[in-house]
Design a binder for these strands. Structure first.
Lengths: 356, 356
DNA sequence: AAAGTGCAAACAATCGTTTGTACTAGGTTT
DNA sequence: AAACCTAGTACAAACGATTGTTTGCACTTT
C-alpha cells in the first residue's frame, strides 16, 4: 500500500544504520547482517574451527543479540540425524488408556534424565496397539528419531521382534528369551518370582496367591517363578488376575479378597502398587500382616518403605537399568553390537513378611 | 569399480520386471514405481481429493507394501508445522536432577494421553535452569515444536513471563497472578492452603507446621494460605522447608520431627508425598495420627487413600487440568486467545485428621 | 619475481517433502 | 465444429540448514 520510500525487500534494508529490529529468521538473514555467507554462519554457530575465531565470536554474538536459533527441522533434514530418541510405552494389555503404573513412570523419569545427559531429546509416545501392527514402525520408519526405547514389551513381543530384525537402534525394557532378536534390559523375573515365593514359604506360608494379570511377559514370568517354587515346596497357588492399571485395581482386589481366600497365607503381588492395595484391603478386612497373611511386592518403589507395615519386595534396579538402556542404545546407534542385560532381582525384606 | 553392464542409476533399473525388493526411501522412489510424479504421491498419501480415487488407492497400497513412510523432517520443514508439542519440566528449585514428584509424573501421563488424543506428538524435556535464561527459548525458538506446555513454574516465573510476551502457544501448569502474561492452569493454592489449615484448626489443632520448601510459587502460595488461616484463628505456625524431591525428603523429615516439635499438633504437607513420609515418621516416633497430630496432604494422588491412616488431603484435578491445558494450547496455536484457569481446591477428608 | 603454501570464506548441491501453477485430455456447451 | 470447462497430473519452486569443493588472498619460499 504505502509504496515509495522503502526499498522493495524490507528485510535487508540498512543492515546496521537502522536501529529498527531486523527480524532474523534464517542463517541467510544473519549472514547478511554479518557480511558473510550462510555457510560460514552455520559453521560459526556450530563452533567449527574452520572459521576465524574472531569472526566466529562476532557471529555468535550477533546470533545471541537477535535471539537467533537455527531451525532444527532443516538442520535435521540435512544432517540426517535428529538427536531425538523415541520412547514408546506400549499399553497392549491395559484397557484403560493411561500411563498409570508408577514403575513405568519412574523408569521414564530416569530415561529422561539419562538421555538429556547424553544430549538427546526425548519424544514420548504412549500407544495402545489397536490390533494393527504398525505402531512401532510409525516411530522407527519416519526419520523422526535416531533410536527407540521401549518401556515394556506388553503383549507385543512378536511385533517388537519383527521390527528389530531390520531396525537396529532399538532397546526395550523387559524380558529376554533365548534367540531373541531385540536387545532387552530388565530383571530376571522368573528368579524374582521364585525368590519371592521361597521367602513366603520359608516364613511358613503354604497357600499362596499370585495377584496380577499375566498378559505381559514380564508378569507372566514372575508367575512362572512363583509357580515353580510353589510346586517344589508342595505349596498351593492360585492366580488372581488383577488389572495392572490403578483405576480398576482397587475394586478387583476388594472383590478378590472378599471371596474364597480365607486360607491364603501368602501373597505375591505382580507390582508394588498391587501390593499396596492388597495391604490396604487386608487391613480393612481385619487380617493382620504378616501374622495371618504375608505379602511380597515387586519393584521396590520408593513408596514401598512407607506402607504399614513396610513392604517386603523384590527390587528392580530402575536407575541402573535406565542407564544401561541408554548406553546400549547409544552403542547401537553408533553401529556396535550389544548384548541384552538381565539384572538379578534382590529381595528386600521389610515388615510385610515373617523373616524366618 | 565394476562399471559396464548396469546403468548408472542403480535405483531405477527395471521398475517392475525385477522381483528384487526395490528400496523405496523417498516419494520420488515410490512415484517411479507407480508411474506418477512425486507430487501426486504426496497428495495421494495425504488422502487429498485432487487425485483420482483409483490412483490414490493404488499408491497407498504400494506404500503399504513397501513399508514406505514419508520422512517427517522434510515434511515438517516444508509445511512449517511439526505436530509436536514440547513438554518442559523446569526443576529450578530441585538440587537432585530427577523427575521424581509423582504429581508431575501423573500430570505428564495425562498430558501424554490428551496430546495423543489430539494428534500431537510429545517432546519431553526436563531442564534444570542453570542460571542461564535460555532454557525455554531453546524449546520455543528452534522450530521444533508447535507449542510448549510447562509442567510447573518452579522458581522461573519471570523468565516464563518474558518468553510469553513474544511466544504465544505456551501454557503452564501453575499459579496465576494479576496481570500475568502467560496462560496458566492450576489450582487456587492459597485457598487450598487455607482450607487445609482451617480443617486442622476445626479439628482442634493450635500449633501448626507447614512442611515443604517454598521456592516454587505454588508451594509458597499454599504456605500463604495456611499462614493466613493460622493468623486469623490465632494458631501458631512454623515453616519446615522440606525438599520436594523424594531422595532427601525422608532424612529431612526425620531430622525435623526429631527436634523441637513436641507441641505440633497439625501438619500441612506441601504434597501428598511429603505427607506420606510424615505419617511414616510419626508412626516411627510413636505419635498417633490423628489423635496427637493431624496431617493434611496436597494433591490427592491415588496413593493417598492407601496410607495408614488414609490421608486427608487437598485435591487437585489433574486429569481435568491436563485436558484444559491441551485445549487452551490448541486454541492458542490456532490464534485464539484464552484465559487462565484456576480450579478450586477440594478438601478430601479421610483418616489422618479429626473430622470435627 | 614466480611459484608454492595455508587459512578463510564463498559457492552450490543436497536433504525429502509440500504446494501453487501450468498443462493435457476428454467431455460439455452453444 | 469452435470454444470452454473440468479433472487429473506433471513441473518446479520453496522450506532452511549442512557440507564438499572451489576460490581469493596474504604470506612464505627458492
Amino acid at each position: 500500500m504505502t509504496s515509495g520510500i522503502e526499498n522493495g525487500n524490507g528485510n535487508n534494508g540498512d543492515p546496521d544504520s537502522t536501529g529498527a529490529p531486523v527480524k532474523v529468521r534464517t542463517l541467510a538473514d544473519l549472514a547478511r547482517l554479518a557480511g558473510v555467507s550462510a555457510g560460514t554462519v552455520s559453521r560459526a554457530l556450530a563452533g567449527k574451527s574452520l572459521v576465524n575465531a574472531e569472526t566466529r565470536e562476532r557471529i555468535q554474538a550477533l546470533a545471541r543479540e537477535h535471539g537467533f536459533r537455527p531451525n532444527q527441522m532443516a538442520s535435521k533434514l540435512r544432517s540426517r540425524r535428529t538427536g531425538v530418541i523415541g520412547v514408546v510405552i506400549p499399553l497392549g494389555h491395559e484397557k484403560r488408556q493411561q500411563i498409570s503404573d508408577p514403575f513405568f513412570l519412574t523408569l521414564l523419569g530416569h530415561l529422561a534424565d539419562e538421555l538429556t545427559e547424553h544430549g538427546y531429546d526425548l519424544m514420548l509416545s504412549r500407544v495402545i496397539p489397536d490390533g494393527t501392527s504398525d505402531w512401532l514402525e510409525r516411530m522407527t520408519g519416519s526419520g523422526m528419531v535416531d533410536g527407540v526405547l521401549l518401556i515394556g514389551q506388553s503383549d507385543q513381543f512378536d511385533i517388537i521382534e519383527s521390527v528389530a530384525e531390520s531396525y537396529r537402534p532399538l532397546v526395550a525394557w523387559g524380558s529376554w528369551r533365548d534367540n531373541q532378536v531385540h536387545c532387552a534390559v530388565g530383571t530376571d523375573n522368573i528368579a524374582g518370582g521364585r525368590i519371592a515365593a521361597e521367602h513366603l514359604i520359608a516364613g511358613g506360608a503354604r497357600n499362596l496367591a499370585f495377584m496380577g494379570e499375566t498378559q505381559g511377559i514380564e508378569i507372566d514370568e514372575r508367575y512362572q517363578g512363583v509357580a515353580a517354587a510353589a510346586t517344589e515346596a508342595g505349596a498351593s497357588l492360585v492366580h488372581i488376575p488383577i488389572s495392572l492399571a490403578s483405576a480398576e485395581m482397587g475394586e478387583q482386589i476388594k472383590a478378590a479378597t472378599a471371596n474364597s481366600d480365607r486360607a491364603i497365607d501368602g501373597v505375591v503381588a505382580a507390582s508394588d502398587l498391587i501390593a499396596m492395595n492388597v495391604l490396604h484391603c487386608l487391613r480393612d478386612k481385619g487380617r493382620s500382616v504378616p501374622d495371618e497373611v504375608q505379602v511380597v511386592g515387586f519393584d521396590d518403589l520408593p513408596l514401598a518403605s512407607l506402607t504399614m507395615p513396610p513392604l517386603t519386595t523384590i527390587r528392580q534396579e530402575i536407575a541402573e537399568g535406565a542407564k544401561a538402556m541408554v548406553q546400549k542404545l547409544k552403542a547401537k546407534i553408533e553401529g556396535e553390537d550389544t548384548d541384552s542385560l538381565q539384572m538379578p532381582p534382590r529381595l528386600i525384606v521389610r515388615g510385610s513378611t515373617r523373616s524366618n
